[in-house]
Design a protein around this nucleic acid. Structure first.
Lengths: 165, 165
DNA sequence: TCTTGACCTCAAGCGCGCTTGAGGTTGCAG
DNA sequence: CTGCAACCTCAAGCGCGCTTGAGGTCAAGA
């Protein structure tokens, strides 16, 4: 097997990571992974590259761009296993990212839940469900289904009755 | 105020939704929202468009494409409030999406957690942390940090203790 | 040694989700 | 009626994350 040397060809890395060679070259161009070259100019990857690729994919799942992933991996060595400290630091950054993302989704979920369950299906009183006339607060970008809490109904153009749950 | 008619201009919808007019025109082109036109050809939106836009943005948060969002809103009327049944159906589709996404993230989180906490920081025994030598199973795309469970180390192509130094 | 598939570079292209710009029209306030 | 901001269409462009293709080289098995 060509695979038994301690360096991987791009084809091998591709097979193992599930990413196309073109994608790996692209990652390398962006500085996400690193390779050495044979005398003839072909890429050879250290095994650590496989972990880095996995990292990048996971990063994308959490919503990071490739550039952000690159920065996130700043503390990880290119061709060696990271030590505990390095790993812990990077991973903890992640936990926060992930937690934030989960919280965001749970907020969204609860809002949809509440909307169905709050008994306000008359569609006039539920500010979540029917926010049209209390909008334009909180500056551009306020969208209830996303992060923002509905504003107090103070200057709303429509009579709002608190949605009893 | 120009806003008090029951139809919104694109500028008003833009201000209230936080999206640029160009984005709204684009959404309309894709069939995500709908407008009527004045005699002169300018767009006028029903208030329901605001809800639809919020919906789209939320959909994007959950990871849907605009096309998927369009399909997801298939059950919602263009220019009036949806009824309970319509809403419930659409929203429940969402719950599943959101739940799946959350589960995915929690899986990822737990893996990172475990990696730090499992005591395997020798970096040789932890298959999550150091999966290089058990990879290439599960077909292309197997990446431990994502959804896949690490495979049993049985038929691995390599001796478990390479990587000298 | 020869063969052949895997590899190389460079440039262009694609799909998504918009934005920008040119060139022209509408509609409301004054 | 006039002025001017807001609107219109259409076409092109952008950033991201890759893929595709042309044209050529490398390296390992027979």
């Amino acid at each position: 097997m060509t695979a038994l040397r301690d360096r991987l060809t791009i084809g091998e890395l591709s097979a193992r990571s599930g990413l196309a060679p073109s994608a790996l070259r692209y990652y390398e161009e962006l500085g996400l992974i690193h390779s050495e070259r044979t005398a003839g100019g072909q890429r050879r990857y250290a095994r650590a590259a496989l972990r880095r690729v996995a990292f990048v994919r996971a990063a994308q799942q959490v919503g990071l761009s490739l550039e952000e992933a690159r920065r996130a991996m700043g503390g990880l060595p290119q061709d060696r296993s990271p030590n505990a400290r390095e790993w812990a630091r990077v991973a903890s950054t992640w936990q926060h990212r992930i937690d934030a993302r989960i919280a965001e989704l749970e907020r969204l979920r609860r809002k949809l839940d509440g909307c169905i369950g709050c008994g306000c299906l008359s569609l006039r009183t539920c500010r979540l469900y029917n926010p049209d006339d209390a909008a334009a607060d909180g500056g551009p970008g306020a969208r209830y289904l996303l992060g923002d809490e509905p504003p107090e109904p103070a200057e709303s153009a429509e009579p709002a009755e608190p949605a009893g749950g």
